[in-house]
Computed example of a mutant assay.
Amino acid sequence: MAYRETPKIAARKQYIREKILQAAAELTAEQGFSGTSVSAIAARAGVATGSVYRYFPNKSALCTEVFRTATSREIAQVKSALEATGNVKKRLHAAVSTFADRALRSRRLAYSLIAEPVDPQLDQERLNYREHYANLFAAAIQEGIASEELCPQHPQISGAALVGALAEALIGPLAARIRDDTTGSASPKTQYSEQQMIKEITAFCLRAVGINETVL
């Protein structure tokens, strides 16, 4: 007779898997993907190192799952801002500032998602992540063109350009702040107010799609 897993055993396995994923997510937020080892994840989750491999074939597969979970959460926040009530300018402003604000508040995780060197499997996930953002921005831009809030433009190109601008504008500040967190001191590049930085990035992105935005 073939073995049939009982609901109790299935629930226990799911619980352990979730514990491992949570531990991996916490360590990634603290140390990045490169600084996270399977043994450290196992210790944080309270399981044997071998147990991790019962649920994930290797570190890359585990990190990919962490990446998907983290990016899904971040995408949901931007999507919510873009689908809120209000005109396109208001919603794009909220979406861009939300992206930048969340990145600067969780800088190690944001840097890992945006720019940390990773293996090919994770790199493909990153491309998917950027494409998803680009599609969300493109839909909002298309709506703005239709309502004549925005000038005629190619929505998909503009959407992808916004994602690129956001990532490029944040890489340097995120890396600098991670160094400051490590050394305990602020370098000249990081003395710029984070709120002012968010305003500047948001204004640039809005101007890029044809919305006049002045930074005060």
Rank of each mutant, 00 (worst) to 15 (best):
A146P: 11
K79R: 11
A160P: 01
Y129S: 13
V66Y: 03
A169H: 00
G86Q: 00
Y15Q: 15
A76V: 03
I141G: 06
V96E: 02
I171M: 05
Q22F: 07
P57N: 07
A169E: 09
A161R: 02
A138M: 11
T49R: 15
S60C: 05
S185W: 07
Q156C: 00
N87E: 00
T98H: 04
L82W: 07
R207K: 14
L82D: 12
H93S: 10
A160V: 06
S60W: 04
P188S: 00
C151E: 14
A208V: 05
A138H: 05
A103L: 07
Q124A: 15
I20S: 00
E200F: 06
A140T: 03
I171F: 12
S112N: 10
T64R: 05
Q121R: 08
G35L: 04
L150Y: 05
P57R: 08
L122N: 11
A115V: 00
R54D: 06
I198Y: 09
S97G: 08
K189G: 04
A43V: 11
I201C: 03
I201Y: 03
S80N: 11
L170H: 06
S97Q: 08
Y129L: 09
D119K: 03
L170D: 12
L127I: 14
G144C: 01
I9G: 07
L122M: 08
G172C: 13
Q77L: 13
R179S: 13
G144F: 10
N87H: 05
G172N: 04
I198F: 13
L109Q: 15
P155G: 09
S37Q: 07
A167I: 02
A23F: 10
G164C: 04
D123G: 07
S72I: 02
T202P: 05
A25R: 07
F137S: 06
E125T: 05
A115Y: 00
Q31M: 03
L92W: 12
G35S: 11
V52S: 13
E149M: 13
V163Y: 01
E148A: 15
D180A: 05
F137W: 02
A11C: 01
K19L: 12
A103E: 14
E74A: 11
A167H: 10
V118I: 14
R102A: 00
A10W: 06
A167W: 02
E5F: 03
S193M: 03
T183F: 13
R126W: 00
Q156R: 15
I157N: 15
K59D: 00
S37E: 03
P120K: 01
V215M: 14
G184A: 10
R73L: 09
L216H: 09
A138L: 01
A208S: 10
R12L: 13
E149Y: 12
A94M: 04
T6G: 05
V209D: 01
S187C: 12
P117S: 06
T49N: 13
K59N: 08
V38Q: 02
F56P: 06
I171T: 13
